[in-house]
């Protein structure tokens, strides 16, 4: 209250003027497109009706029926792609969290060269995602890519070189690249979280005779929870919504094993020019994300602290 009192004596229009540019841009580029997208999802909008989209035939829930009908090829592909996205995201986030937490515990002590390791660990996250995609495409090339060279030529783990970028292995390829790219974020978050835990808690536990595992279980994990749960949620959303990494690794037409939702909707809309179904799928994707956020909120009780 006191913070604002000296301002409120002189209410003025200046607030409005300062907010106006941001407000207009948000309305035009964020809010309006969402409404337009919602409308398009009820129409049969193709490349022929694109220039007159307001008069594209209104077909009600038809696009949603097609998208949600598993016995229809389009619907089946949509469900498949949703499942791929979910698996891709879940594996990425779980692996990144474990790696990130482990990495943070490794450098959370003072030792010579600590800052160097910290910087090295951040490098994948500092790279543009499309470069990450290009580099991993390069690594996974079949005949001479480093992955196959190491597996076959150098260490003789397997006898013949598998294809990584096409066929069933493409999923593994994008997951590895995605983990490589995403774990530093959770590392950064975990490290920040560790530093918020007061050291005297550990000292007190030691006096009471707690071992390393007990300290980790009862001090470190609960202490990390508020920060790391936000980190997990953000990285889940970013990975689920990410288009760039799979696109720059596999191009517009990935094999079904790596046909994540973003790529799927993209090729549906901009190659097959089915804007209506594309929009319906985007809306469904957003609703699924909303559900996931709610579930997540239930699980981690975001915003509330240390109730354990």
């Amino acid at each position: 209250m006191h913070k604002y009192s000296w301002l409120e004596k002189k209410p003025n229009l200046i607030v409005l003027w300062m907010l106006l540019p941001a407000l207009v841009l948000e309305l035009l580029i964020h809010i309006l497109p969402m409404l337009v997208g919602l409308y398009i999802s009820f129409t049969h909008l193709t490349t022929f009706t694109l220039h007159d989209w307001l008069h594209a035939p209104f077909i009600g829930l038809e696009n949603y029926k097609v998208g949600l009908n598993p016995s229809n090829p389009l619907g089946a592909a949509f469900f498949w792609s949703f499942f791929i996205s979910l698996a891709y995201t879940a594996i990425t986030v779980i692996a990144s969290t474990l790696l990130g937490l482990g990495g943070a515990l490794l450098v959370n002590h003072h030792f010579p060269g600590r800052a160097v390791f910290r910087t090295i660990f951040l490098l994948p996250y500092a790279m543009p995602v499309f470069v990450v995609g290009i580099v991993w495409r390069f690594m996974f090339m079949r005949d001479w890519g480093l992955v196959n060279q190491l597996l076959v030529n150098a260490f003789h783990v397997i006898a013949s070189k598998p294809f990584w970028l096409i066929g069933p292995h493409a999923f593994i390829a994008i997951v590895i690249a995605s983990i490589w790219r995403n774990w530093p974020f959770l590392f950064l978050i975990s490290l920040a979280g560790l530093q918020t835990i007061p050291p005297d808690q550990y000292e007190a536990a030691e006096v009471d005779g707690a071992n390393t595992l007990m300290k980790f279980r009862h001090i470190t994990l609960p202490g990390l929870r508020p920060v790391i749960s936000i980190g997990i949620l953000l990285s889940f959303l970013w990975t689920f919504n990410d288009f760039t990494l799979p696109f720059s690794m596999l191009g517009e037409n990935p094999s079904p094993s790596a046909d994540v939702l973003t790529l799927h909707i993209y090729s549906n809309s901009f190659q097959d020019w089915n804007f209506g179904t594309g929009a319906a799928m985007s809306v469904l994707m957003m609703m699924a994300l909303g559900l996931i956020i709610l579930l997540f909120n239930r699980m981690f009780r975001l915003g509330r602290r240390n109730e354990l």
Partner: peptide
């Protein structure tokens, strides 16, 4: 609202923005 727009998939905006720009 400003924060919420952060979590929506870019795909959701791309199509309508393309249509609106056209």
């Amino acid at each position: 609202m400003i924060l919420a727009t952060q979590i929506f998939p870019g795909m959701l905006f791309l199509l309508p923005i393309f249509v609106m720009f056209t």
